[in-house]
Write a protein that binds this DNA or RNA. Sequence first.
DNA 1: TGACAGGGGGTGT
DNA 2: ACACCCCCTGTC
Length: 294
Amino acid sequence: MNAAWSAWKPLRPALRLTPATLAELLDGGQAFRWYADAAGVWTGQWDRHLARLRLDPAGDLMWSAPAALAAGTEPALRTYLGLDVTFAAHVDALPWRSDTHLATCLGAFPGLRLLRQPFGETLLGFLCSATKQIVQIKQMLALLAERHGEPLATGLTARTLPSWTTLAARSEADLRACLLGFRARYIHETARFLAAHPGWLEETEALPYTEAKARLCLLPGVGEKVADCVLLFGAGRLEAFPVDVWIVKTMARRYGLEGWSPAQIAHFGRTHFGAHAGLAQQYLFAWERRHGGR
DNA sequence: TGACAGGGGGTGT
DNA sequence: ACACCCCCTGTC
């Protein structure tokens, strides 16, 4: 039995989105703990927060939270949704004036932005992501929270994701039982490394992009793609440009880069899109997910 | 309705 | 290049 939810309130400052952009933002591969109901109400979790989001008729984002937690939810949402980040200016600085495909992608998902998720949780999510689709990653994280997380608050059934400390105390078999497959060993070994190096993750988050990425790549199961996702979705590093199979496909088709390696595509992306290449990547990725194969 | 391939947002060797 | 795990999805 869940406690009562607070009344719906508009987000301040306001965030005006289309339903398609909201779906892409919450369930488009940045985060893996949001679920929509038939009425278009999204329920999701991050850190020790639980919230509902919906668009009012004008398209402005409204939020609600369990009454006992609601006081802390609004500032947390502002951080999580990056309301202090000038995404409109960053988008305008992308080369859409000379890149018609990019202009099309920007127009299809107006207001799309990058989430600022908890760093450690983002790492866990993307350690689960290898050769998995979003629906399966969500299932893994739901099982990890259900079996190894902590109750969010008394009276709530929702649970947090397990901390890295908790994960380090679990057996690889316990993790494997959460549908992790071969990823269980990576998560187990990463958890043990982090347990043996207190503060390592926090120091990594604070480092400049290149150094932070190099450090993340030291973790078992973390290569360039996962490291870039963690930095882009969990640390606000808009210069990170993750290259996965979708981006390889869309860059080959739309930018004539057939046969290019992921490293070559990453270099092209940084050069072509500039300092906020990761933001461009998210729009291209959203477009490819929607129109892929056509 | 139920079984059966096929392939999946990568990394490590 | 290929193994790593095993669940989702489409198909018959």
